[in-house]
Computed example of a mutant assay.
Amino acid sequence: MDTIAKGRQSHSLELEFGAGATPKPDSKGSAAQADGSLAQRVGAIDWFDVEQGLNAYGSAMLHNLLSAGECDALTALYRRESLFRSRVVMARHGFGRGEYKYFAYPLPPLIAELRSTLYPCLAPVANRWNEVMDIGVRYPATHAEFIERCHAAGQTRPTPLMLQYAIDDYNCLHQDLYGEHVFPLQVAILLSEPGADFTGGEFVMTEQRPRMQSRTEVVPLGKGDAVVFAVHHRPVQGTRGPYRVNLRHGVSRLRSGQRHTLGVIFHDAT
């Protein structure tokens, strides 16, 4: 959130909308350990499986996307004020409790690589979703091309961020929109170890369905795990055809310790 923004071939949605599909909420095809280069790890992910989870639940896990060492190195960046463009204390804005900081350009290399490496795997999903939802926007093949689009529209402020929570901190349900150009999927990576560094603090999502009660999803992340999730809405097959459901995400109250998360948002902010 920003104070300016209150705001394999036939993967497709046939996996959910066709008969006999059994989508899973996480990606068991992800690398068992966070070894090799980031590009190798991303290449080892079963993106077919990831798309099934996204189609069925609006989220999917990427297990061990980052190593423990990478998580610790990223967490250490939080103290380096020169890397960030702004700091938000959530209680001041009614966003919850805790704080987060937006990175400035140039982004730290690993964060820039996460953006450029994950985006091409997600853009085909985003395009299929928009087609099903009858949204005219299509996303280019590379992140650099998409960022050019954002910047041409005046969205020039980087949105990757790091969040820090202490005891009793939480993040209210929200959406990270930031401007006219919104990439419909984003990634959050847990940098701390549940049960060792903190307790509580679960990543949660809610889905508002028309004329139905909201559905809640809790994603059981471990250190170095990532969750890919819908920023705003996703398509669902109804009896009269596909329709959109609205999603929000947040973090439940921390019971003990301290928790850090990296948020990888692919569009920039106005």
Rank of each mutant, 00 (worst) to 15 (best):
V50H: 02
K101V: 08
P242G: 05
L66Y: 04
A196I: 12
H232F: 09
I45E: 02
A112P: 02
D35A: 12
S37P: 09
S37N: 09
P140H: 05
G200P: 04
V228W: 01
G136R: 13
P242H: 10
A44H: 11
A126M: 08
C121R: 15
A112C: 05
C71L: 09
E51P: 01
R128D: 15
A56P: 03
S30F: 00
D46V: 08
S59I: 04
L254S: 00
V125W: 15
L185T: 08
R234W: 05
Y105S: 15
I189Y: 02
I265F: 04
A112H: 12
Q208S: 10
G238A: 06
I147P: 00
R255Y: 07
P194G: 04
G241F: 04
A153C: 11
D35G: 10
F229N: 02
H174V: 01
M61F: 08
L54C: 07
P210A: 09
V132T: 12
S82P: 07
V42T: 05
I111E: 03
Y165G: 01
L163A: 12
V251D: 00
V245H: 06
A31S: 15
R41Y: 00
I135S: 11
Y243P: 02
L254W: 03
P120S: 07
L185G: 06
V218C: 12
H232A: 14
A60T: 09
M162S: 04
Q208F: 11
P109M: 08
Q52K: 15
P106F: 03
F48E: 15
D134S: 13
F203G: 01
M205V: 08
G257F: 00
R97Q: 14
V227L: 10
M133F: 09
Q52F: 07
A141W: 08
R215K: 15
